[in-house]
Computed example of a mutant assay.
Amino acid sequence: MKIAFLVKRFTRSGGKERYVVELAMALKRQGHSIHVYAYKCDHTLLKEITFHRVPLFFTFSSILNTLSFIKETKKKVPKQEYDIIHSHERNYTQEIITLHSLTYCEGLEKYSFLRKIDQKYFSLRSLLYLWLEKRQMKSPWLISVSQEVSRDVEKYYGRSDNIVIIPPGVNTDQFNPVSTNKLRDQARKENNLNKNELAVLFVGSAFQRKGLERLLPEIKGDTRLFVVGKGDKLVKYKRLIKAYGLEKKVVLTGMVKDVKQYYALADIVVLPSRSEAFGMSILEGMACGLPVIVTKNCGVADLIEHNKNGLIMKEDSDLGNYLHLLRSKKERLRIGIHAGTTAKAYSWKRVGISHEAFYRQILSCKSSV
């Protein structure tokens, strides 16, 4: 098949972007011709993949930038030349769209009553996002990355037909216990971790939504927290760290080129999100044989059997209890082994095969009309 992907950035810099890159490579290995339409790309990723640059406008506004991307790709992508055109951005002009995030409607639910009224009826930005999302949900075919996303779409838009769930994969050649164990001693030494310190890892850039403030007060005793990512409201979190007296216990790394060294030094991976479409850092941690803690409203929680291959928080108070439980090396090893076994079933090859089957289903439906 000749397949076109639409994504603003063809890089490995974020969860959605990594998904598209790995999917493109998996489908390429399966013998398909892959074309990428994007604002920018990492040219080291373009081996046997064709890149088409999309003109970039309205960098000052996320919604106008998105509407511009829709308009420019509609003009630039010749539909008759491709078997499949697959958008990974908010869109309404393509037949196939992957939903990498929860709905805008879901985000509004977290506001106070007055703020919600203001956003739904008086904010031009919100009105445009809601208009765009409503049109997007009418697309013929949708792919969601988790049950959490599918439930969200059905709740707010009543959509349950022609939508399939294909969760992200993990590169087990890169993330696995053998390779991280080789790096562990050096990584812990470089970060001044002593043998008995418990290293907790938090990976993500939306600190507020991903629940960093829930985690900070639970960093006690011989525990260090490594926060990998470029967070929002950074000043607020630095103040919280100081207020809790954690200046020597919390390391804010910012964006890093190689996150693998942090999985190598870690004992536990935690994602206490308020809402999360999936949570790729958890799957990567599981692939490295690490025990993980997530909230019940993370999409990745669908892969976790509580107290077997991970721990699922139902209340904020659970987090401290689970961190205490995982101070036991025996418990970490028990859960980590099961986590690693689970992760092996979620390769990018499997993701590619699932997409290929879905594409063929769509083409079959179109040819029978």
Rank of each mutant, 00 (worst) to 15 (best):
A301C: 06
L6V: 11
P177I: 07
L290T: 09
D185Q: 14
V259L: 01
I362P: 08
L23I: 01
F5I: 00
K75W: 06
E81G: 01
F60D: 13
F60A: 12
S13P: 01
K40F: 05
S112H: 09
M25V: 03
S146N: 00
L27D: 00
I312G: 08
F5Y: 15
S13A: 14
A243H: 15
H338Q: 14
A345N: 12
S317H: 05
D152L: 11
V178C: 07
E17R: 02
A4I: 05
E247W: 00
G254W: 06
M137G: 04
N192G: 06
Y92L: 05
L183A: 05
I268R: 01
S68M: 06
L212Y: 04
V270E: 09
N192C: 06
V164C: 11
G221P: 10
L325Q: 11
M313R: 09
Y263D: 04
K189N: 11
S123R: 05
V153N: 07
R360Q: 15
Y92G: 06
A343M: 08
F358A: 08
E356W: 02
A24E: 04
W131C: 11
G279D: 12
F57G: 06
K230F: 09
E72N: 09
L45Q: 07
S368L: 14
I143F: 07
D222T: 13
Q30C: 03
H88L: 04
V351S: 06
R350W: 03
E154F: 15
Y92H: 14
Y37T: 03
R188W: 08
R9K: 13
N191K: 12
E95C: 00
V256R: 11
M1E: 08
Y111F: 15
L99N: 08
A187K: 09
K242D: 02
S123I: 02
E218F: 05
F60N: 12
H35M: 02
F278K: 02
N171S: 15
A4T: 01
I362H: 04
M313E: 01
